[in-house]
Amino acid sequence: MWKRDDSVKPAAPAAPTPAAAPAGEQRAQLGRDMVSIGKSVVIKGELSGSEDLTIEGHVEGRIDLKDNVLTIGPNGKIKAEVFAKSVIVLGEVTGNLTASEKVDIRDNGSVDGDIGSPRVAIAEGAHFRGSVDMQRGSKPQPKPNPPQQGQPQQPHQQQQPQGQKVGA
């Protein structure tokens, strides 16, 4: 009897294993700080907040999540000026993206607009048309590290071209 009762007790008091801890925290984080806009939702206007947001529906206008992560899901379609801490694009975006940390366009993600962010990652298979300006972030960025061995040199480290005129 006692044994049976013990066996159904939640395992919460026990110290979580290292592998389980992040997943548990992630679930808690998801439940607390993440909001999702579903496939069938259409929003026109200004969207702002202080929680991470996932958009699977349509949004037109302006999105302002300066301290949070915006994820445009595979079904999401955005026609908006976007300001966020980080932007992850799996769906379609038409409009400019400004992020203080990172813009990440994943495989099959599509962006038609200008990106201003200190870090930009564009996956193979992603579509992008526009400009990238990594100097234009809302937070000051440290100078990039010098290239590691095997990586390209910066232009100022190179010599002037010594080429010769060819042809006419």
């Binding site: 870090r119 048309r129 526009g130 400009s131 990238v132 300006d133 100097q135 990039p144 390209p152 232009p155």
Partner: peptide
């Protein structure tokens, strides 16, 4: 990122 160019694709 490495060269500090403004890039337009």
């Amino acid at each position: 990122e490495q060269l500090g160019c403004r890039l337009r694709v």
